[in-house]
Amino acid sequence: MIYIILYICRKGVDVQIPRFDKNLEEFYSICDQIELHLKTSLKCLTQQESSQKYLNLPVAPTKTESLGLNDNTLTYPQFLATATAQVAYTKEIHDTLVAAAQNISPSD
C-alpha cells in the first residue's frame, strides 16, 4: 500500500492522507450518537414498563374507532383521554405541594 502511495506521489498526483484527529473526532461523534440512542432506548423501555404497570390494558394501534376490538382494549382516543387526565392530576398534585411548601416556609 505504501508503494502505491509513493508511486502516485511521484507521478504528481496529490493524495490526501486522512488525518488522525478528524477520524478520532468522527469516532467520538459516533460514540456520542450511540450513547444517546441507548439512553433513549432505556427511557422507552422504562416508559413501557410503567405503562404496563399502571395501565394494564392494551391500546389499539389505530387512531380510528374499530368495531372488532374486544372490551379489554383501549382505543386511541380513550388512551389520550386517560393520559391527559393523568397529566392534569399530576399537575394538580404538584401545584398543591408547591402551595403547601410556600405556606410552611416563611417568605422574606
Rank of each mutant, 00 (worst) to 15 (best):
M1K: 08
I2C: 00
I4N: 07
I4E: 09
L6R: 12
L6C: 00
Y7V: 08
I8A: 10
C9N: 07
K11F: 00
G12D: 08
V13C: 06
D14T: 03
D14G: 04
V15K: 03
V15E: 02
Q16S: 09
I17C: 08
P18E: 05
R19T: 02
D21H: 04
D21R: 07
D21Q: 08
K22Y: 08
L24T: 02
E25I: 02
F27A: 06
S29V: 00
S29M: 07
S29L: 05
I30S: 06
I30C: 11
C31Q: 14
Q33S: 06
I34G: 03
L36Y: 06
H37C: 13
H37L: 15
L38N: 13
L38H: 08
K39L: 13
T40K: 15
T40P: 01
S41R: 11
C44S: 07
L45T: 04
L45W: 10
L45R: 14
T46R: 08
T46C: 04
Q47E: 09
Q47N: 10
Q48N: 08
E49S: 09
S50A: 11
S51W: 00
S51F: 06
Q52F: 06
K53V: 01
K53A: 11
Y54I: 00
Y54H: 13
N56D: 14
P58Q: 06
A60I: 00
P61G: 01
T62H: 07
K63V: 02
K63A: 14
K63G: 09
T64L: 02
L69P: 01
L69H: 05
D71T: 05
N72H: 12
N72E: 11
T73G: 05
L74K: 01
L74H: 02
T75M: 07
Y76C: 03
Y76T: 00
Q78R: 08
F79P: 01
L80D: 01
L80F: 04
A81Y: 03
T82Q: 05
T82S: 11
A83H: 03
T84L: 13
V87G: 00
V87C: 04
Y89H: 11
Y89S: 12
T90K: 11
K91S: 12
K91M: 12
K91Q: 15
I93V: 13
I93R: 12
D95N: 13
D95F: 01
D95Q: 13
L97D: 14
V98D: 10
A99R: 14
A99E: 15
A100N: 14
Q102C: 02
N103V: 04
S105T: 13
S105F: 04
S107C: 09
D108L: 09
D108R: 06
